[in-house]
Design a protein around this nucleic acid. Structure first.
Lengths: 236, 236
DNA sequence: CGGTGCGTTGACATTTCTCAACTGTTGTGG
DNA sequence: CCACAACAGTTGAGAAATGTCAACGCACCG
């Protein structure tokens, strides 16, 4: 967790965060003054569950995994956070304790916003409340979607739903999506084992539903995938 | 969804909500003026997913279920909401569309806070922002817990975790918890089938872990239940 | 008294996890 | 430059858990 030398456009990066939309520049500057930038290597721990929460974070580049470690050693992924998103605000405002741990999946650069300073600013500047409310609501919807995926019974529908929600780009007449994370982490996010994920993709490949090339997937038969996503049956 | 005649202590009920902690009485009164009270019979729909969101709600008495209906007709429970808790605020602030449906599980009385009026008040009175931020964070933690439970692999650990988190009271030397909802709804919340739930409780009863009497459960062997909650193994 | 809905129990089919071995790639150190 | 270790991903075989379908008891309510 090396401090990185601050980038010139820190305020600009902050302004792009959902939290700070429509915030006057002078307030942005005050927030920027509370920030430090950090470099994280894959596997490096940013904070761990139970630790006192003295900051919240924004991902600038890379990918950060938020997870809990179950008593039996199993890792429960709460969420993966990509560039332009913040996390741990809820801990700061609510408990003052991190409810989960965070680590980098890829080499990452994160912005650390000092908790004590931010809370003080928040108390003074009531305007901050409104912008944070709307971004917290956004978080709520994200978690809601995740719950929706998790309550899907079959691994196949979970995976199909996930794939179809990924931003897709067209190439040569077919939809192509890029997995934003390694397959093993994707499996964890879907709460299935890497083996099942591998087997599902293999089956779908044989059936001509997808073409797999590393992390990039061509969705060859979107209709059938949609049917799988909606059905409670397995990969069939 | 019959309108109920307003109760005298409406402002008092509002003041007890997490949203409106530490709110000056005059603001509370203004919020109270935006409210209507409703009576709901079991199964009665309060709103459905996709509908325009023109209000948010607080449960006064009874139990309300928030759920989505999956394309295959399956019902996915997002959460059950008991007295003293609010819901649909996120929809109001974020999308303006209900992301889920809500219905009463038991005969219920809910407070409906008009959305348009509340948003206007929210814009004027910046003080509202702070109190709502903290309550939204509370919601985030609730959903986080729910995700944690859902990622627990075995039905047994899900159930045990759920039971152990229930408020317990002591009776005759043993811990007793009351299920806040019918077993069939509990099963839905845990994302298992009613049959599995029934079988789990039967097994645990035979092993002397619990004693079941309708909705009231005596936890006879808390240590083993904790072990089950933490283990990834099944009910064994 | 008959209906309706919850909860229980049984038999069965199916999916997914577990354990294990094997491949391919990457990166390190001799 | 090569050998080796470390790790992600794949594939196989078997076990175990949960879902499905079906029938039944039981309460509650008209």
């Amino acid at each position: 967790m090396k401090p990185a030398r601050p980038t010139a456009d820190l305020a600009g990066a902050l302004a792009a965060l959902p939290h700070f939309q429509e915030l006057p520049p002078e307030l942005l500057a005050r927030v920027a003054a509370m920030c430090r930038e950090l470099e994280l290597q894959p596997g490096e721990l940013l904070f761990h569950a139970g630790q006192r929460c003295d900051a919240f974070f924004a991902v600038r580049a890379g990918l950060v995994k938020v997870f809990r470690t179950a008593p039996d050693g199993r890792e429960q992924v709460v969420h993966h956070i990509g560039p332009g998103h913040t996390f741990a605000e809820a801990a700061l405002f609510h408990h003052g304790i991190f409810p989960a741990s965070a680590t980098a999946v890829e080499p990452s650069r994160v912005i650390r916003v000092d908790g004590a300073l931010f809370l003080r600013l928040f108390a003074e500047e009531r305007g901050l409340g409104a912008s944070m409310v709307s971004s917290l609501c956004g978080w709520l919807h994200v978690l809601l979607d995740r719950i929706e995926v998790l309550t899907l019974i079959s691994a196949g529908s979970r995976l199909a739903t996930y794939l179809l929600r990924l931003p897709a780009h067209e190439a040569g007449g077919t939809l192509v999506v890029e997995l934003p994370l390694p397959k093993k982490d994707l499996a964890a996010e879907l709460s299935i084992t890497p083996e099942t994920l591998s087997r599902l993709l293999a089956r779908w490949r044989e059936r001509g539903l997808v073409r797999v090339d590393g992390r990039s997937l061509a969705l060859l038969d979107v209709r059938t995938l949609q049917a799988l996503a909606e059905s409670s049956a397995a990969g069939e």
